[in-house]
Design a protein around this nucleic acid. Structure first.
Lengths: 343, 343
DNA sequence: TTGTATGCGTTATCAC
DNA sequence: GTGATAACGCATACAA
């Protein structure tokens, strides 16, 4: 287990360690022949540089980290891919790091910054209801991507953010249902304590109803269940079961994620209801899965490519061109599919 | 960006660096009061130890890495959770690392072993058609989890593996369809070059047909499409479109993953077919999503909890108790749901 | 163009 | 219990 080091390679090649280092790191001032020879020896002996030592020594790397809370969320998959492309395009490298649900993303970030000498960070997912104090501790530029949770409009100079306007898009969805003649619209969202996208989408729901002179009824508001994973399909299923039990009258159901919507859909169908004939169902996000569900799910499609590429662009503008942090919002697109119909 | 180090903390506290180190690492021989004081200073100054330096210095950590190719695959989600529990139970820590599709998992492993001084590795996902030569280079014990791709029965002493018997389980599925009266059974699998689980499941399909005196017809074998992500729902959708175009006669469709099965299902339904009335569809894996699809997908459920916990158990037996590597297979369970019916 | 020496931040090994 | 000090493996300033 005593593995080979740069010194061993230097000794074998009969050169100094700095020459080996130059060969590895594509330094310009090195004789091509010695370089080729060294590289061949490295190949032969399967030498692999120790990243810990490199990180420790290097003043600054060209690495950007993307911290994802809920990495299995299909909504993030495409975003990550695009971010990766954008980062590579700029000759930087991406460190993809997964944050557990019970971990604090800022602590993880702080640790990673030290360990890898990061230049910037992207936060993806999670609630992110952190104090400004804590945010200030992050010593590199960072961007919140599709995290709508920061309600505090002040003190946002320390970071950038890119997302849709959750209230606005949520209104679009409910407006559409209202236009189709639905008046009794139930909603599935997160806990009342949730300060994140859920509360924004719920707010949009309220506003849309009020704009149509319908007073929102709390008995139409259903919450995800703690026993199941947040925003998961089984959570949607079980909430919908409760809705049916409640005997609450409604004709349309708005779930604040596509996964929830699909689960709810299945629960209704399992109980002999027809979608969209008996109930119209809409989701939020626009994940691919929703297109292939049966029925395909009407949803608010977030412009993931745009959000992802702008996230990276903003980040680079801050630390390369010294620009100020910005907060961008993009328009989503209502995709009308099979799960909804006119009442 | 000049961040605080252990030396700074030592100076502030008026103690030596080794005392600070002892405080951080819960060393036994340190005065409780000095320890508490040091920790309070650390807290106050937001000191975070540099992991690169720690990894560099430490002889051996208690870290196990799980390398996942295709981390967004929902099939792996539960497995990872269980592995995490099992690893923590043994007072080790889990390093979850994502491998890109175009990356070589062994190279990634080799690098990570050096960087983090890993004690062992779990490989999850991917094809893993690597030469024995390359596998031998991995200097720590490792386990292949649910990777059926190693056909070479010899030379398997260097590692462990845990999975279902893909041929056997595949036969179960096809046997079931045959028992239901289906004789014309199409299959969706990977490229012909694929040496991985796909070829094993295809082999099981062949064997089951032959056992029932049905000569497999190559025109019933359909392949995933290169343009789309492997094993994805959209791939299944597009393959099924081709199947319909081919006008090949069949009554049942076996897709070697649940995702493929769901996509295929949607394609058929979009073309006015009924599932299971016109076609029976089965998948493989037993992911939760399949239960909530409409219709829910008949599938071969892999015992993920068992596979995950045994993977970790084997790994620890090798490097803690010095036992020999083993190759375990577990039985899957055929879950009959709504997407199939008797012909 | 190349080699030597220093230090990155930490832990381990000693002395005290 | 505690504090110097020597590594860990590498990149780099500087000397050659």
């Amino acid at each position: 287990m005593n593995s080979i080091t740069i010194k061993d390679i230097a000794r074998i090649c009969g050169v100094g360690v700095s020459t080996v280092s130059r060969a590895i790191n594509n330094h310009p001032d090195i004789n091509k022949e010695t370089k080729d020879y060294i590289l061949s020896v490295i190949e032969e002996y399967n030498y692999i540089p120790n990243n810990s030592a490199r990180n420790l020594k290097r003043i600054e790397t060209n690495a950007i980290a993307v911290l994802v809370k809920g990495i299995t969320n299909p909504f993030f998959t495409d975003m990550i891919k695009i971010m990766e492309q954008e980062i590579e395009k700029r000759k930087y490298s991406l460190v993809l790091h997964h944050v557990e649900f019970n971990e604090n993303e800022i602590d993880v970030a702080l640790e990673l910054i030290k360990e890898k000498r990061l230049r910037g960070i992207v936060f993806l997912g999670g609630h992110f209801s952190h104090s400004e104090d804590k945010l200030k501790k992050i010593p590199v530029p960072f961007v919140l991507s599709t995290i709508g949770g920061i309600v505090d409009e002040n003190n946002r100079d320390g970071y950038s953010s890119v997302s849709v306007n959750d209230i606005h898009e949520s209104k679009k969805i409910v407006d559409y249902l209202l236009d189709q003649g639905h008046k009794k619209i139930a909603i599935i969202c997160a806990d009342a304590e949730d300060e994140s996208i859920s509360s924004l989408r719920l707010e949009g729901y309220y506003q849309a109803l009020r704009n149509h002179n319908i007073e929102p009824d709390e008995s139409w508001v259903f919450r995800m269940q703690r026993e199941f994973e947040e925003y998961s399909i089984e959570n949607g299923y079980n909430v919908a079961l409760d809705i049916l039990k409640s005997n609450e009258e409604f004709t349309a159901l708005y779930a604040i994620s596509d996964m929830l919507a699909m689960g709810a859909c299945k629960a209704l169908i399992d109980h002999g209801k027809k979608v969209p004939d008996d109930y119209s169902i809409v989701g939020f996000d626009g994940i691919k899965l929703g297109q292939y569900y049966n029925p395909s799910i009407t949803t608010l499609v977030q412009p993931v490519e745009k959000i992802a590429s702008e996230t990276i662009r903003l980040l680079f503008e801050v630390f390369e061109n010294d620009k100020k942090h910005k907060h961008l919002t993009f328009e989503g697109i209502l995709a009308i599919r099979e799960s909804t119909k006119v009442l």
